[in-house]
Design a binder for these strands. Structure first.
Lengths: 104, 104
DNA sequence: TCCATATTTCTGCAATTATGGAAATATGAC
DNA sequence: GTCATATTTCCATAATTGCAGAAATATGGA
């Protein structure tokens, strides 16, 4: 459900986590790196990561002792497509060129 | 703040309100029409509209007894640009063409 | 003024969410 | 097995959010 995905990103700490993971894409980051960067207590961070994982916005992979989180670009793509569709295609409320300038 | 905008849309009733207002854009709808369409009790709907208004996602204008709400496309545009930038420009996590197909 | 309609505000309650310390678990090195 | 490190789970608490009935306010017409 898109509302749940939006809600999951609708908090400053979690939005920052997503931004950080996107900037580290596609390698992602292990929890400790995220913690050090964002200075969020470990249990709090773990809760946020869990929420993002539940909404499928991030993916996890264990690397021995570490857990490496990556942004789930497929889910983000779907969300963007949904928003784009609502704003620009289904109901021409916004012009595509006001959002992106591709056509490279 | 983008997190607050995402949060405001991160609820099923409010996301539906936004979709409805976008589909009625640019005329918008008066509260009674929204209520009839979405079947939300008036006080509950009023709270949702208030939240959307606080995050600048909708605009209101009085028409005698009625209040007409419209989607604030400028704010939506900014939000889409932000997400686009995070996903596609700043960090090339997603390819633009996976979200939009313009170049008409 | 009085009335009808539209919408919000007041109020309270229930449910959800955010937060973080402490304990538990997982993994690998020795 | 013991230890150190990484991360989560447990637990409690505070804060926010969602919801909706009832009362209040706004507007315009008779």
């Amino acid at each position: 459900m898109y509302a749940d995905m939006l809600s999951a990103m609708g908090t400053e700490p979690r939005l920052r986590i997503m931004q950080l993971l996107l900037s580290a894409h596609p390698e992602g980051l292990v929890v400790g790196d995220i913690q050090e960067e964002l200075e969020i207590p470990n249990s709090t961070l773990s809760h946020h990561l869990d929420k993002l994982k539940n909404e499928n916005l991030v993916q996890v992979k264990r690397e021995s002792t570490f857990l490496r989180y990556t942004a789930n670009t497929e889910a983000l793509q779907e969300l963007m497509q949904f928003l784009y569709s609502e704003c620009c295609t289904r109901n021409k409320a916004l012009r595509p060129q006001d959002i992106v300038a591709i056509c490279s």
